Simulated assay, not measured.
Amino acid sequence: MADISVRGLSKRFGPVTAVRELTFDVPAGQVTAFLGPNGAGKTTTLRMMLGLIAPSAGEALIGGLRYDRLPHPRRTVGAVLEAAGFHSGRRGRDHLRIAAQVAELSAARVDEVLDQVGLTDAADRRVGGYSLGMRQRLGLAVALLGDPEVVILDEPGNGLDPAGMAWLRELLRDLARQGRTVIVSSHVLSEVAQTVDRVVIVHEGSLRFTGPLAELADSGPALEAAFLRLTGAPVASALKES
């Protein structure tokens, strides 16, 4: 399976440096949390990993290659950056069929991923009638269509109820148990503490911590305290965002 290696990654937008010389690894077979306050540079970093924006310096490699050099990118990487971009009048199953066709993936995967994300019963409903949580599941289904080695998710728990969060936790762990590389950006620190093996924390575009969760915290409150210390975030603000 492919891992992710980030080396000296930086991104400037005019006079603003959004990401500053990030260096960290995301190993296969584990769930890694990518944490930071709003505006810390997390989404910009994930977009550079996926080749959606070019870095100003440094590189992000997946299995030793930049995303645009991967021979079969949709079979190597599955990603969800936002639960949007769905045609509201299209049925969930049809959206997946089109996504599979565009990516030159097997149509047989459609029913498999619908079952995997728990959308089989809603597959023939129009996406416009989906809740936010159901759209999150549909986005996950698209990401999993290629049976990818690497899964990159930005706030995948947004809109999920407690049962949905428990389901997501088990899904992420199962993907890691299969040897896949999983990186998840999230503000829900209590859930992160129950789910991940490793943590990467950034603040104002710079790296604050990278390593096993056990080196930083052994529970939700401990992770929250460490996060606040490393980012200098006001307690009330951080609790509200998480």
Results as ranks from 00 to 15, higher is better:
2 A>W: 01
5 S>M: 00
5 S>E: 15
6 V>K: 09
6 V>T: 10
9 L>S: 08
10 S>Q: 05
10 S>H: 11
12 R>M: 09
12 R>C: 10
14 G>F: 14
15 P>G: 06
20 R>W: 06
21 E>H: 14
25 D>S: 13
26 V>F: 05
27 P>M: 03
28 A>V: 01
30 Q>E: 15
40 A>E: 04
42 K>I: 02
44 T>H: 02
44 T>F: 00
46 L>A: 13
47 R>G: 02
49 M>I: 14
51 G>Y: 06
52 L>K: 02
54 A>F: 06
55 P>S: 08
59 E>F: 00
59 E>N: 01
61 L>P: 05
63 G>M: 12
65 L>D: 09
66 R>M: 01
66 R>W: 00
70 L>V: 06
79 A>I: 13
81 L>Q: 11
84 A>D: 11
85 G>R: 08
86 F>R: 02
88 S>R: 15
90 R>N: 02
91 R>K: 15
91 R>G: 04
91 R>Y: 01
92 G>E: 09
93 R>S: 01
94 D>S: 12
94 D>E: 15
94 D>N: 04
96 L>K: 10
97 R>W: 11
99 A>Y: 05
103 A>Q: 12
105 L>C: 01
105 L>Y: 07
106 S>A: 14
107 A>I: 00
108 A>K: 12
109 R>G: 07
114 L>A: 03
114 L>S: 10
115 D>K: 09
115 D>P: 03
115 D>Q: 14
115 D>F: 01
123 A>C: 13
124 D>H: 10
127 V>R: 11
127 V>T: 14
127 V>K: 09
127 V>E: 08
128 G>F: 12
132 L>Q: 14
134 M>C: 06
134 M>N: 06
134 M>T: 07
135 R>G: 11
136 Q>N: 12
138 L>G: 06
139 G>T: 07
145 L>Y: 07
145 L>V: 10
148 P>D: 05
149 E>F: 02
150 V>I: 03
150 V>E: 10
151 V>Q: 06
152 I>V: 15
153 L>Y: 09
155 E>T: 10
155 E>W: 11
159 G>T: 13
159 G>M: 12
161 D>T: 12
162 P>L: 11
163 A>M: 12
163 A>P: 00
167 W>Y: 08
168 L>Q: 01
170 E>L: 11
171 L>K: 00
172 L>N: 04
174 D>W: 03
174 D>H: 11
175 L>R: 04
177 R>Y: 03
178 Q>C: 07
179 G>Y: 06
179 G>Q: 08
181 T>V: 00
183 I>R: 00
183 I>E: 03
186 S>G: 10
188 V>Q: 15
191 E>L: 11
192 V>Y: 08
194 Q>W: 01
194 Q>E: 13
194 Q>N: 03
195 T>R: 01
196 V>G: 09
197 D>R: 00
197 D>N: 15
203 H>W: 04
206 S>V: 05
206 S>W: 04
210 T>W: 13
212 P>S: 12
213 L>G: 07
213 L>Y: 02
215 E>Q: 15
217 A>P: 01
217 A>S: 03
218 D>Y: 00
218 D>P: 00
219 S>K: 01
220 G>N: 03
224 E>L: 15
224 E>P: 05
227 F>C: 02
227 F>L: 05
229 R>F: 08
231 T>D: 09
231 T>F: 11
234 P>V: 03
236 A>F: 01
236 A>N: 00
238 A>S: 15
238 A>K: 07
240 K>Q: 09
